[in-house]
């Protein structure tokens, strides 16, 4: 069983030697995976659909970026700051989202995300506006490993952060807290009868997911030495949801799988033409929605179950 868990991580590590030319892409996958994990916590486990997760991703990216730009380039404290700012934003917005109710709450997340995008767009003095944040300079990790041109340090750094946070998330969802989230997703009216404080638990999940997204954003800013409005865009939120659904909701490993499949397909197809990618992305989304959820991981599980029955 432990072996089964080791496979994806061994594969990710092997990528470092197997694809030395593609390390920036691999870093992008690791960051996308962390973002998808953050969405899985809130959408997959707590059952709260959000269209504005990019707000936290972008907040983290700008926090880490601005910190480094202003002369504090220490990576780990930068990530902590990114997580803290994103969590704070989550704490402020959670009551608004939860108060509005299901459908209106969905739109509140969308509205809040767009508000932050516009705010960053207009606050060009701080964020660089549409040009993006320039002059992000990182210090070496532990004062030893520089961020090199080929993205070696960047990839190992992103992968290590993803690994630690992923394992933390696994502990979290296996804890009583994680089970109470599933209870709320299963039946939000019955959960209070079982003694689950619904609002408090959802708020906590929302804040934790926000912090995760913030770290993912911080990683992006640190490894690419750049932060742009792109990090806050609706497209980012939609992409994250798609990765999650592509891989499979509510299993954490589905988020990893989805991020890999999505990013690789994006890379391969948009080389042909961005419109081509957009078209097939749309087809995949419609097909996934109509076929029901479970994603790639669900398909794999069904296949394994069928093999066992024989």
């Amino acid at each position: 069983m432990i072996l089964l868990h080791a496979i994806p991580w061994a594969g990710a590590l092997a990528g470092y030697w197997l694809f030395p030319e593609q390390l920036p892409l691999l870093s992008a996958i690791a960051i996308a995976a962390l973002f998808a994990v953050s969405l899985d916590l809130i959408v997959g486990y707590a059952g709260l659909v959000t269209l504005g997760q990019a707000a936290f991703f972008g907040a983290g990216a700008y926090t880490a970026g601005i910190l480094a730009q202003q002369g504090w380039g220490e990576p780990f404290s930068g990530l902590l700051a990114a997580a803290a700012v994103a969590a704070l934003l989550g704490l402020i917005s959670a009551p608004l989202v939860l108060r509005a109710g299901e459908l209106a709450g969905l739109m509140v997340t969308l509205g809040l995300g767009l508000m932050l995008y516009e705010a960053a767009n207009k606050a060009a003095a701080i964020t660089g506006g549409a040009d993006g944040l320039q002059g992000v300079e990182m210090w070496p990790i532990f004062g030893l490993y520089r961020f090199d041109l080929w993205g070696r340090t960047a990839y190992l750094y992103s992968l290590a952060v993803l690994f630690v946070l992923f394992m933390l998330a696994r502990l979290l969802v296996a804890s009583p807290f994680g089970w109470s989230l599933r209870a709320i997703r299963g039946n939000a009216r019955r959960a209070p009868a079982l003694g689950v404080p619904v609002k408090a638990r959802l708020t906590a999940a929302y804040v934790i997911a926000a912090a995760y997204a913030g770290v993912a954003g911080g990683l992006l800013a640190q490894t690419t030495s750049f932060a742009s409005l792109d990090a806050l865009s609706f497209q980012r939120s939609a992409d994250g949801l798609l990765m999650l659904v592509l891989g499979g909701l509510g299993s954490l490993y589905g988020a990893l799988l989805g991020a890999v499949a999505f990013t690789v397909a994006h890379h391969a197809l948009s080389e042909a033409s961005p419109v081509f990618w957009q078209f097939w992305l749309g087809i995949a989304l419609v097909a996934l929605a109509l076929a029901g959820q479970g994603g790639l991981l669900g398909l794999a599980r069904a296949a394994i179950a069928r093999l066992r029955r024989r």
Partner: peptide, 18 residues
């Protein structure tokens, strides 16, 4: 559920845009 509807309709937008 709303997530399915969101994904479905975003997909439709992408297809028609392309």
């Amino acid at each position: 559920d709303h997530l399915t509807q969101v994904l479905f309709s975003i997909g439709l937008v992408f297809i028609m845009g392309a």
